[in-house]
Design a protein around this nucleic acid. Structure first.
Length: 212
DNA sequence: ATCCCGAGGG
DNA sequence: CCCTCTGGAT
């Protein structure tokens, strides 16, 4: 089973695998919005100053968008992200009593929050069933032959069938770690991959001069 | 399908 | 120069 082998390769719980898992639902939500098209390392370098200035939904809701822009500029897409962050915090205050909702359909009503971000919050912050499908999860699960589909929602439903509800969050985090370290988008390191005997894409990689 | 957008690697 | 990085909204 792919699940168990991944657990051996990348041991640890969600708290250990996600740097901001301990910081509460609101800060995790903010960090996840910032993480779009941005390395998590840069997000982790950005959030301390942001949370020192705006630690709660209430403070962020009344923030000056230009000040938020300045604080998050290095994460890219900073105008969109800053506008979404303030709007998101405003909706939290006005419609959710300043708290992050647990329900998926409620989460995706928040500005800047799509299905992937909503599943991150659900699984990491609340320990609820949720399997975030990002670019890594999509690519790696397809290469491993866990799904044939190309749309994130379809991939999510296929993976839901393969992984028990309680393990879906960490399963996603482990696929991401594997996608970053080994099953990279451009030059996958198939030679050193622990799934070499199992992965249907490895045979193609053998004759591929782009693979390490 | 396209736009948003900075930073770092090759 | 090129590409990629835990997406979401239009």
């Amino acid at each position: 089973m792919t699940d168990e082998r991944l657990a051996l390769l990348y041991p640890g719980s969600a708290v250990e695998l996600c740097a901001l898992a301990h910081s509460g639902p609101f800060q995790l939500l903010v960090a996840t919005i910032l993480s779009a098209q941005c390395t998590d390392e840069r997000v982790n370098r950005t959030t301390p100053a942001l949370f020192a200035r705006f630690p709660t939904a209430e403070t962020l809701a009344s923030a000056d968008v230009a000040e938020v822009e300045a604080l998050i500029r290095s994460t890219g897409f900073f105008r969109t992200k800053a506008r979404n962050l303030v709007a998101m915090a405003t909706v939290l205050v006005e419609r959710f009593d300043g708290r992050v909702p647990e329900d998926l359909t409620e989460l995706v009503t928040l500005p800047g929050v799509g299905r992937k971000t909503a599943n991150v919050v659900r699984s990491v912050a609340f320990g609820l069933p949720g399997l975030p499908v990002d670019t890594h999860v999509l690519r790696v699960s397809r290469r491993l032959g866990l799904t044939e589909r190309t749309d994130p929602v379809g991939v999510e439903s296929d993976l839901d069938r393969l992984v028990p509800a309680r393990r879906r969050g960490v399963f996603s985090l482990r696929l991401i770690l594997h996608g970053r370290a080994t099953c990279r988008a451009r030059r996958p390191r198939c030679r050193g991959c622990a799934f070499g005997d199992f992965c249907p894409s490895t045979s193609m990689a053998e004759s591929c001069n782009r693979c390490d």
